[in-house]
């Protein structure tokens, strides 16, 4: 569904991502893991068009979207949730969801909000709370819900579990699996929390110093003792 072909990405003069290629297949979870500073977020920013792409291509359903500006990517059915600043803290949960449905039309917006709340019942209980008063897990739920409002086919999540307690992180990952199986989404995930994420993923890539060290089945990466020990803190 999404194909990245020998992508070189950076900021200004700084070259960070070197010749990375991979493919995300429909209705799978593709996870990018790797040590801090390995360029995971930069790679996503390159795909989204926020960082500078020096060379290479990003193809979505066969269409070249490398130069499509970030805010227009949603029109292609790509939903992106950044790692931080992914909600409006001064707005209520309801207002946040309304904003995410901006321009969809009254009835469709209501319909989508209903669907999303059914999926995340915890948010319904806090519907009139200011987003800044939500717990960390609720915030991420809200951010992902906002992503779902436009019903994208392809979802990009940047470290959704960072800063969450392990049990909440695990729950969140379960819901991401649910998004693949029940909502039939394709998901590109970047995770710090490598072991837990790989356990629920289909395919995976290990990104070290801007280069891909491994591409293949997530289970295979989990079982690779050498890579696991070296980069992922897996015993």
């Amino acid at each position: 569904m999404l194909r990245v072909e020998s992508l070189n990405v950076g900021y200004g003069k700084f070259h960070i991502i070197f010749d990375v290629s991979f493919e995300v297949k429909e209705r799978t979870i593709f996870t990018i893991v790797g040590p801090n500073g390995g360029g995971k977020s930069t790679l996503l920013n390159g795909i989204m068009g926020i960082a500078t792409v020096f060379s290479g291509r990003v193809l979505y359903k066969g269409q070249d979207i490398t130069r499509v500006p970030p805010h227009e990517k949603s029109k292609y059915g790509i939903g992106y949730t950044p790692q931080t600043d992914n909600i409006f803290p001064g707005l209520t949960v309801m207002e946040n969801l309304m904003m995410a449905a901006y321009g969809l039309g009254e009835s469709m917006a209501r319909d989508r909000i209903e669907k999303v709340l059914a999926y995340y019942p915890a948010l319904r209980r806090r519907i009139d709370a200011k987003a800044r008063n939500l717990s960390g897990g609720e915030r991420q739920m809200l951010a992902i819900s906002m992503n779902l409002m436009r019903d994208p086919e392809f979802i990009i999540l940047d470290e959704p579990t960072s800063g969450l307690a392990p049990i909440i992180a695990k729950d969140l990952l379960k819901r991401i699996v649910g998004m693949r199986d029940e909502l039939k989404k394709t998901i590109l995930l970047v995770e710090q929390n490598a072991k837990a994420a790989l356990e629920v993923s289909d395919d995976a890539m290990l990104l070290v110093s801007g280069r891909s060290e491994f591409i293949g089945k997530a289970q295979a990466l989990l079982k690779d003792e050498e890579l696991g020990r070296k980069y992922l803190g897996v015993k």
């Binding site: 970030p70 949603s74 909600i87 207002e95 904003m99 901006y102 321009g103 906002m146 436009r150």
Partner: peptide, 22 residues
């Protein structure tokens, strides 16, 4: 009003507001 809320959203986080399509 939706426009009023979108104004608050743009004040709080213009980057995200743009991504969302406001």
């Amino acid at each position: 009003t939706q426009f009023g809320i979108s104004m608050r959203a743009s004040i709080e986080n213009p980057q995200l507001a743009r991504i969302i399509g406001i």
